[in-house]
């Protein structure tokens, strides 16, 4: 059987691209604003559930996705201004504060929408089948869109004026301020952008799984690992590490047992971190 490894490779590649996108929202905030946003999973959760709500009131699937992404970006900005910005210099406090915010989001969803499992309508339906490889169209679309979004983001940061301001602020906040860059605005913008990207990964990935109030924790932990072991602030590192993670998970799940897939993938990221303490593509 030649087809089986191909299927496993494709499974790993597609899920890896989605993991990469999940991690980039976190990575962006981590490297620019300099804080570990533990509410990452909470924003992921909000993205998926808002999309679900918009679909429920009868909006078309693409419109619901766009609206959910924008809403989460706005919520991110508001949350940042109200809670995180006042204690920005206390890193450990921010870590715990955002963690508590994730619990708040989860509980609000649980109380208002309910604890039972929900399904999100996918962007495209149907199954792709060719040469013994079977894969849902949503999975392929999600992977391709993830890569496009990541490419757009890195071009935005590299080319645009705003992107240059973001990079300047990352390197030296005080010097950026001296040059007339509104650092607070950059922080707010980056936080909104990061949370919007997280919501983007949520609306793409959530139709592949089910929706429930605690769904955000695994993506949060995954993203943290992929970000750190890929190299902080490295967009390419996050994507490469996401794909490595996805491939390891897929192969071990197929050849040994599904329960060992995540264990092996986490172990691999830990080994990467210990061998290269600055991360895979970090400087």
């Amino acid at each position: 059987m030649v087809e089986v490894p191909l299927q496993v490779v494709l499974n790993g590649l597609t899920i890896g691209a989605i993991y990469g996108l999940m991690a980039i929202g976190l990575s962006l905030i981590f490297s620019v604003v300099g804080i570990a946003n533990s509410a990452h999973g909470g924003f992921y959760l909000l993205g998926a559930y808002l999309c679900y709500l918009f679909q429920m009131i009868g909006l078309s699937v693409p419109l619901a996705m766009m609206l959910a992404i924008i809403c989460v970006g706005v919520i991110g900005v508001v949350v940042y201004r109200l809670t995180i910005h006042p204690i920005l210099s206390l890193h450990a406090n921010v870590l715990i504060l955002t963690f508590l915010l994730a619990i708040v989001f989860e509980q609000i969803i649980r109380i208002t929408i309910g604890p039972d499992y929900k399904n999100l309508q996918p962007l495209v339906t149907g199954v792709f089948e060719s040469g013994g490889v079977v894969m849902s169209n949503q999975r392929i679309t999600a992977a391709i869109l993830s890569i496009i979004l990541v490419a757009l983001l890195s071009q935005f940061i590299r080319r645009s004026r705003l992107g240059k301001a973001i990079r300047m602020t990352t390197q030296d906040g005080e010097a950026a301020q001296l040059l007339g860059i509104d650092v607070t605005f950059i922080y707010v913008l980056t936080f909104g952008l990061g949370t919007a990207l997280t919501a983007g990964s949520a609306v793409l990935a959530a139709p592949l799984f089910t929706l429930y109030p605690a769904m955000g924790w695994l993506p949060f932990i995954l993203s943290f690992f992929i970000t750190i072991s890929g190299g902080l602030g490295s967009v390419a590192g996050a994507l490469v590490m996401g794909v490595i993670f996805g491939l390891t998970d897929a192969f071990v799940s197929y050849y040994i047992a599904p329960t060992w897939g995540l264990i092996a993938a986490f172990l691999l990221t830990l080994i990467v971190l210990i061998v290269r303490p600055q991360g895979l593509l970090g400087r």
Partner: peptide, 26 residues
């Protein structure tokens, strides 16, 4: 772990706990 510092150390520890939890469950 003493090769790691700051956020990397924190996350390395978190990874250890995650792996251990998954292993115990498996």
């Amino acid at each position: 772990f003493f090769k790691l510092r700051g956020a990397y150390y924190a996350l390395g520890m978190a990874g250890l706990a995650k792996i251990a939890t998954l292993t115990v469950t498996a």
